[in-house]
Computed example of a mutant assay.
Amino acid sequence: MATVTADLDPFVHPALFYRGTHEYLQATLPFIRGGLTAGEPVAVAVPERNLRLLRTQLGEAASEVHLVDMTKAGRNPGRIIPGVLRAFADRHADRRVRIIGEPIWPGRSVTEYPACVQHEALINLAFPGRAVTILCPYDVEGLDPEIVKDAEMTHPVVIDSAGLRLSDAYAPERVIHDHNRPLPDPRDAATLSFGDSALMHLRDFVAGHASDAGLSGERLEDLRLIASELAANSLDHGGGHGVLRIWAENGQVVMDVSDAGHITDPLAGRRPVDPRQRGSRGLLVTNLLSDLVRVHTGEGGTTVRVYFTI
């Protein structure tokens, strides 16, 4: 199976369609070793099973690779660009870097998937002009065929058992648009409308309902912080008021904030921010701390929904 180099384009984003362990290793190991030989920093962010496999096959060379369990670091797909990909690439901004990123694996839920495919599309907007190669493996035996079709839309280049080819279906902006769908209403949610004077009450409201549902400790404080940040965004950019809802669902605490604002920047909340830079960091904080973030935005308003596993 062919691998990818980046001699012509400063940014390269291929999808790897693999069947079984042999094809996976046949593509990923030369990619990793080629980067190490060329003196390029290499990161591997894949599910734990594949991480163990690559660590074993690399032997001593594994110590030269930045290894990340994507099921933890990338559980929320909105965290991957700022917290995994940009975090690594920015540390080595003076050199080309190689990254294997596997954000979609068998077992991802239907609730998570829209955020996953949007993430893959947004990578193409986050790295233009950067000397970065991001190889994204897809287990075509374990994934739904529709997911594989979507991968052809989010990656300009595809690698499979036949070799390397350009994707005729490549259309990342369409993917971003098509998965910006209204979120289903909860069956039973506690609701709070808020304005300038309600932020302290809002934090207590969230903490009380989340605690009753079983959330505690640091995670409870994270949710309080996110509620405050999203509400502040609504006050600053969403018409000066908003509506917060919170409920329990499938072993998770779910909270969303809706307002009249419209997020026009598709990478909002996915760029690392210099702590010395002034301005809102609410969406970035939300992505970094939540187990999942879903967003629906348009001229009629925006809803940001967060999920915390109990």
Rank of each mutant, 00 (worst) to 15 (best):
A6G: 12
D7P: 10
F11D: 10
F11C: 10
P14S: 06
Y18V: 03
R19S: 15
L25K: 14
Q26L: 05
Q26H: 07
L29R: 01
G34H: 13
G35L: 00
G39I: 14
E40I: 07
V44R: 02
A45P: 05
A45R: 03
V46M: 02
P47G: 12
P47K: 11
P47I: 10
R49C: 02
L51F: 04
L51I: 00
L51Y: 05
L53N: 05
L53C: 09
R55N: 06
T56K: 15
A62D: 01
E64Q: 14
H66F: 15
L67C: 07
D69L: 06
P77D: 07
R79T: 10
R86Y: 05
R86V: 09
F88M: 01
A89T: 07
D90G: 04
H92M: 05
R95Y: 04
R95T: 12
P106R: 06
G107Q: 07
R108L: 11
E112L: 15
Y113L: 09
C116Y: 07
E120Q: 12
L122I: 04
I123T: 02
N124Q: 09
G129F: 00
G129S: 09
G129E: 03
I134M: 13
I134G: 10
P137S: 11
E146H: 13
E146L: 08
V148S: 06
K149M: 13
K149G: 07
D150G: 10
A151E: 01
E152F: 08
H155I: 03
G163T: 03
R165V: 07
R165L: 04
P172M: 02
P172H: 02
H177C: 04
R181A: 09
L183V: 08
P186W: 00
T191W: 09
S193T: 10
S197W: 06
M200P: 08
H201W: 14
F205H: 06
F205S: 07
A207G: 07
G208L: 05
A213S: 09
E218R: 08
L223N: 02
L223M: 13
A227I: 14
N233A: 02
S234L: 12
H237L: 09
H237V: 11
G239C: 04
G239H: 08
V243F: 04
V253Q: 10
M255S: 04
V257Q: 03
D259K: 01
H262A: 14
H262M: 06
L267Y: 00
L267N: 00
R271E: 13
L283H: 09
L289F: 10
R294P: 12
G298Y: 01
G300N: 09
T303N: 10
T303I: 14
V304S: 04
V304R: 06
R305K: 06
